[in-house]
Simulated assay, not measured.
Amino acid sequence: MKRTTAALLPLLWLALSAHAEVQERLQEQYYDLQVASGESLSRAINQASPIRQNGQIYHAYTRWQVQWNFWWREQRDGRCQIDLTRTRLSATITLPRLGGGDAQQRQRFEQYLGALREHELGHYRIGQAAAAEIDAALLATPEYPSCTELQQQANRRANAVLQRHLEHERRYDRETGHGHSQGARLTE
């Protein structure tokens, strides 16, 4: 009997911890860019980029979204507590893809693309932190006198976490100059 119980404990632990796991999906998509030998790489990317916001042209962009669900258990007296959560992070990174160009342009582009991708992965990591913190906040939501109140408070907590991370993302772009301080800069 002890052996069976000991063998089941790791499985029980896995089952209990699985309810807190964040599911993640990251995709990369590309827009094509053609550059002629001797042409300005920066100008060519600016012309090809579909990423335009508030009158600005960007060479890359990361869009992430956190979705959460939770299930609760209602007691006979109406008190309610969260039993299970499911939090999902979906993200898409949009980057340029070079066609044409001479060897020097392709080399400069590859260096630039590496720094650009690393900057965009920083945005993704902010999304990962948001998803993990939202899931933890939902699981830590205390019991409430009613399920309606629990639902309102849990969503309020999750949205507050989301807003903090959206501000963190804006600050990240300001502090890095949208990746310039990380090497995502073309000088021509």
Rank of each mutant, 00 (worst) to 15 (best):
I93P: 06
I93R: 02
T94Q: 08
T94D: 03
L95A: 13
L95K: 09
P96W: 05
L98W: 01
G100R: 08
G100I: 05
G100N: 03
G100S: 09
G101M: 02
G101R: 01
G101Q: 01
D102W: 00
D102C: 01
D102V: 01
Q105F: 01
R106K: 13
R106H: 08
Q107H: 14
Q107P: 06
R108L: 12
R108Q: 14
R108S: 11
R108F: 08
E110D: 15
Q111L: 11
Q111K: 11
Q111A: 10
Q111T: 03
Y112P: 09
Y112A: 05
Y112Q: 10
L113A: 12
L113F: 09
G114T: 11
L116T: 15
R117T: 15
R117S: 07
E118D: 15
E118Y: 15
E118A: 15
H119D: 08
H119C: 07
H119Y: 10
E120A: 07
E120G: 10
L121F: 13
L121G: 10
L121A: 05
G122M: 03
G122E: 02
H123S: 02
Y124A: 00
I126Q: 08
G127F: 04
Q128K: 12
Q128T: 09
Q128H: 06
A130T: 00
A131H: 12
A131G: 12
A131Y: 07
A131I: 13
A131D: 06
I134Q: 12
D135Y: 00
A136F: 01
A136K: 02
A136R: 09
A136V: 02
A136S: 06
A137D: 02
A137I: 06
L138W: 08
A140K: 14
A140C: 04
P142W: 12
P142G: 06
P142Y: 06
P142K: 03
Y144Q: 15
P145D: 15
P145H: 12
S146Q: 03
S146E: 07
S146C: 02
C147I: 01
C147N: 07
C147T: 04
T148K: 04
T148S: 10
E149A: 14
